[in-house]
Amino acid sequence: MAMIDVRDLRKVYGPKTVVDGVSFSVQPGEIFGILGPNGAGKTTTVECIGGLRRRDGGSISVAGMDPAGEGKAFREALGIQLQESRLPEKQTVAEALQLYSSFYSRPRDWRELIERLGLGAQARTAFGKLSGGQKQRLSVALALIGNPKVAILDELTTGLDPTARREVWGLLEDLKGTGVTLLLVSHFMEEAERLCDRVAVIDRGRVVALDTPADLAAGVQADQRMSFIPSGRIDTVALQQLPDVHQVSSTGERVQVTGTDNVASAVIIALHEHGVAVRKLRVDQPNLDDAFVAITRNAEADAAAAQPIPDQSTAAAALPGGHR
């Protein structure tokens, strides 16, 4: 049986439909990512799942319970780390964990948790004096203190520097296989790639892709990107007309070209014919980030096709055979 089951979830704010028929299910012990651009409806979706917002349609079941009931048993089974939620500046790490553990009937041992999250040395440090990464680890600790079956972690690493981000990721990797089901909200593809078993990409309140991170990247035909410094003047219009080229642009003397898998050789040959050499060449393979951009752009194009808005055609043209 699924640990989290969401069917056709809808949430409306005034005239705006923020969540428009989201469905997915998460298996016990799975780390499930919810990705999407800002304002896509990710937080609203998880807040409905967490029983913090009333849904306007659809059904949700978390560990067999309906969050709309919002009973004590539901709160015992679910831990939530909220986006941008702070603690009193002068409360210490140990005090916060002790206080929150008193709220649950079967809490985890906070001393063990503090060590596990690498906060042992900060037990007596006030919240206001913690680093960003330490604050986030404490936030994760508070979501796990009640020994929940499911933990929702919302934008855990947003605003952290790369070191702190890796620190938090390391912690979540350690949690893999401890049996707790994690629902991770993010807008970092790298985060999902590293941590998640499966990922749902949400855009404009809809699930536009749902797969493992690897299959998601493989399924998208994103553009290849190349950039170089030409040895002489080049004709960008002629370059643009090559069949393998989608877009040509330049910053300073460096020229960027995007196109199909063959774009690099096609451009180099064409320039060679005009006696122009290519220096400092760089070619980038599409990665998960590109997949994310392609998926969400594609959804945008679909929306544009449904209700014609000018200016969206470039996005569709740049992304042939996008993924659904």
């Binding site: 913090l52 909220l82 939620s85 702070r86 709220f103 009640g146």
Partner: peptide
């Protein structure tokens, strides 16, 4: 301040 900081909202996520 507790409301601004999200302390009250965080409490809503607990059994109390």
């Amino acid at each position: 301040r507790y409301r601004e900081m999200g302390v009250l909202k965080r409490l809503r996520t607990t059994p109390v």
